[in-house]
Simulated assay, not measured.
Amino acid sequence: MTKKILLFSILVFFSFKMTGQNTIQELLDIKDQLITHAIEVGKEYDLNLDFSDASIKSVEFILSDLHKEFIKTKSDYGLNGLAHIFGFYIIEVIEKNHGKGRIERNHPSFVEDVFPFYWNGATLFPVAWCQKRIFDGDADNVAFKYQMLIVDKKGNE
């Protein structure tokens, strides 16, 4: 992991923890910052995150690499921040390609800071998808989840 990527992830992680309960507007402002960082991280991997459905495969590639790094180092330092960056990028891809949704910071049935995304009658957890992919591995492939829960669902309506 490059120093630049690590710096992004640390800043993001601490910005969530330090701001407490955010207003909707503050969440939207954070979202824009995270998406910008996701694109920058993609560039570090020579990948173009262009907000297409296909770009989720690039996100999966990056998360897979981060999982390998986690297994190798046994350190989660900065990885939660990266999960937030890519979770918010996934939300943006959904909204650009499949319609707007609503994001909140917390969900009443779960721990704080899970950032549920309410879209098309479903409650999705893209940040948690990314966390699970980084820490748990291939079984939590975000490209597969995206295909099943977003693309295939939208196509079946």
Rank of each mutant, 00 (worst) to 15 (best):
residue 1 M to F: 14
residue 2 T to V: 08
residue 4 K to P: 04
residue 9 S to T: 09
residue 10 I to E: 10
residue 10 I to S: 06
residue 11 L to D: 11
residue 15 S to Q: 13
residue 16 F to I: 13
residue 19 T to R: 08
residue 19 T to G: 07
residue 25 Q to S: 11
residue 31 K to C: 03
residue 32 D to I: 13
residue 35 I to C: 15
residue 37 H to Y: 10
residue 41 V to R: 07
residue 47 L to G: 04
residue 48 N to P: 05
residue 49 L to T: 04
residue 49 L to I: 13
residue 51 F to M: 14
residue 59 V to W: 07
residue 61 F to H: 06
residue 70 F to P: 03
residue 72 K to Y: 09
residue 72 K to F: 09
residue 72 K to T: 09
residue 75 S to F: 00
residue 77 Y to N: 11
residue 81 G to M: 03
residue 82 L to Q: 04
residue 82 L to D: 04
residue 82 L to C: 05
residue 84 H to N: 13
residue 85 I to Y: 01
residue 85 I to A: 11
residue 91 I to F: 01
residue 93 V to N: 01
residue 95 E to F: 04
residue 98 H to K: 02
residue 100 K to E: 15
residue 100 K to Q: 14
residue 100 K to H: 15
residue 101 G to C: 06
residue 104 E to M: 12
residue 106 N to S: 09
residue 111 V to N: 15
residue 112 E to T: 02
residue 113 D to C: 08
residue 114 V to F: 00
residue 116 P to Q: 04
residue 116 P to V: 00
residue 117 F to A: 00
residue 123 T to F: 00
residue 124 L to E: 01
residue 126 P to W: 09
residue 128 A to H: 06
residue 128 A to E: 12
residue 130 C to I: 13
residue 131 Q to C: 08
residue 132 K to Q: 14
residue 134 I to A: 10
residue 134 I to M: 04
residue 139 A to V: 01
residue 145 K to S: 09
residue 145 K to I: 13
residue 149 L to V: 07
residue 152 D to K: 12
residue 157 E to Y: 06
